[in-house]
Design a protein around this nucleic acid. Sequence first.
DNA 1: AACGCGTGGTG
DNA 2: TCACCAAGCGT
Length: 317
Amino acid sequence: MLQQTTVQTVLPYYHAFLEVFPTVEALAESPLDAVLARWSGLGYYSRARNLKRAAERVVEEHGGSIPDDRERLQRLPGIGEYTAGAILSIAFSRREPVLDGNVIRVLARLFLLAGDPRKQPLRNVLWTLAARMVPADDPGDFNQGLMELGATVCAPRSPTCGSCPLATICGAGRAGRAGEFPTPQPRPVTVPVRLAAAVISSCRGFLMVRRARAGLLADLWEFPGGEIQRRGDAQAQLARLLLDRHSLRVTVGRELARFGHSITNRRMTVIAFEARLEGARRAVPPGSSWVDPGDIGSYGVSSMALKILAGVGRQRP
DNA sequence: AACGCGTGGTG
DNA sequence: TCACCAAGCGT
């Protein structure tokens, strides 16, 4: 959960998750949809699928015990160099380093290391430094302390060097150049996108569709709709979209919710419209289903769907 | 190696 | 409002 996600965001998810899946066996035996439901809103949903698969393999291949060596750990899905180091040092008290965004920042400033820290050759230099620094006694505490320093004092912007315990030995801090490290890297341009979604309700709930098995928000449920042109009649475009993509003939009504949403390099404006099916009530198209709003979390919906639902007021139709 | 993958906080 | 960044990993 903590991969690319802050502690504050993770904490409530973590506690709820452990309530439902208290053991590796419980996680391994639970349906994937139940796992995704507890992940709903946290993002990077591949992490949930990887975690579930890793639990299955720990049960099947390791007798239910987490491996305590780097080779076997990194063979589990979702566990890379960083996570293996975190598990080994924190859980098993092994003298193994961690290198995350926080440690990268602290080390780059301590040693005035310029360049892209995520690429070679600097990446190797940082791992070597981290490995040489970690002590044999309480390596987990040391690693967590290093990460915590980066998350609090040695912050990305406006670091508080005046209250830093490493101020006297920090190259960048002593030079008053902490803001120059690590070297900022160019980012891909963000593309503005406009999305329209249809909120179609009946006595059986909301009509939702399951996204493709691969790609963006893979396998998650959403309100039917998609990208529309910035110009033009949004309602008409949405009706055409539902007909083309889902063979749904609908009348689009009033706007229910509008909000901004960002995914990777896309900056989206999402507009949700009330809509109703035209003509005789037919079977819903394949991949779609009437969803009870009370069960919405059990379908692994994304935060986009949750925001739309909030706009609807979470009321049973 | 470079890119895709979510969401929330911050200045 | 918006760019930037976060306890990275898989392909």
